[in-house]
Computed example of a mutant assay.
Amino acid sequence: MKQLNGERTIYSIFHLLNGKKSSQTLQDAHLFSLKRYFRILEPLTREEFDGIFNNLLERKMVKTSGDQRFILTSKGHAYLSQHPQPTYINGWEYQPNTWLVWERLSLLVQVASNITYQETKYIPIQKSTDVHSWLKDYLRSTPIPKRKLGETLYTELVDVYEQAKDINPSVLVYRLTGYQQIGLTSTQTAKMLNMGPLEYHVEFTNSIHYLIHCIEKNPARYLMFSSLLANFEHKDSLTLSSRKTWVLLNQGLSLEEIAGVRQLKMSTIEDHLVEFALSIKDFSINPYVEEGTQQKILEISRQEATKQLKVIRNILKDASYFQIRLVLAKYGDRQWN
């Protein structure tokens, strides 16, 4: 809410946390430097969100600034400065694979632990056949002797989490299953650590994202953990509909022709171009907005400290709303970061 500063409704936050793949939500994630929170609370319901927001209102952390738009009060700013956000959360990059990494890690720990104690009769903690196949492939290909798997895994786990003083490893470790020991559920772990369900979910996600970050940063240091990232799902933030438009655009069709072929409104095709500007690094917006106009839009946005289209359009009447959206999508986040 602090980042949005009353320029979007509170439900844009709900859609961001849920990871809604709409042009508006994807653009908001970029424009307001909120990509790290994208999709990190998929289980969050509208009722839960309303409950949290109403609690903020009752505690006078936020105040209204328009229809469904709110800004932080001085009390809200003070609270935020005293309660740092989880450092390693990176929903935009890591959320598509967060659960997969957890499933692989938990099964790997269980199997390595039972191998260490020469136990062969146990029920796998994970049921996914894909995760089982991944583990079989790993055990066949790893140069680490089976008797050393548990020791190596323990060493790497300790090495990772000893580096992060702001992460409580218990968030993750309490849930691990091993030889003659069943890990706790998320609910049980949250209760053990005196956390609410959503607070625990965020902390658990933070710990997994930190693990992924460490492995990506230094794969040679974490030879065993590196296997957790094998065959990752590649992040593709484009919606299915925009991908179809992308194909036609690359075939040389004009925007009008694409709208005709796809039987879509022109505004929908424009939404797709905004997605391209957000997500495709080499996508040029020059054919749609003159460079001089681009500079004027960015300058007004900076001077007025706003990303509201209407404010910019009222000052620069020669630019269309589509052109303003396109420029902000391409360069808006760089302007403010």
Rank of each mutant, 00 (worst) to 15 (best):
P197I: 06
I208A: 08
M224W: 13
E233T: 07
E151L: 00
L229T: 13
L193M: 07
T187V: 14
L184N: 10
T205C: 14
G183R: 00
M224S: 07
L157C: 09
Q181I: 02
T155P: 01
F232V: 09
T152D: 10
L153C: 13
V158S: 03
H201K: 07
F204S: 10
K191Y: 14
V173E: 03
L238M: 04
T177C: 09
Y200A: 15
P197W: 04
L193F: 01
I215W: 02
V202M: 08
N168L: 06
D159F: 01
Y179V: 06
N218Q: 15
T189E: 06
E216V: 04
Y179M: 05
L211C: 09
I215L: 00
S186R: 01
N218D: 14
Q188R: 04
H234K: 14
A230F: 15
K165H: 15
C214W: 08
N218V: 15
L228Q: 00
S170Q: 10
A164F: 11
N194P: 00
T189L: 03
K217H: 08
T177L: 06
E203R: 11
C214E: 10
Y222N: 06
F204N: 07
Y200K: 15
R175F: 11
N194Q: 05
A230P: 12
E203G: 05
N218T: 15
H201W: 11
E156C: 04
L223R: 13
I215P: 00
Y210R: 05
F225K: 02
V158E: 04
L238R: 08
M195L: 15
D236H: 03
E151V: 03
S227K: 13
L198T: 04
R175T: 05
L153K: 15
Y200F: 14
R175D: 09
G150F: 07
L198Q: 09
A164G: 05
V160N: 00
L198P: 02
D166H: 04
F232K: 08
S237A: 14
A220Y: 15
Y174V: 05
M195W: 08
K217D: 04
Y222A: 06
E233W: 12
I208N: 02
D166I: 02
R175L: 05
E203I: 11
E156T: 02
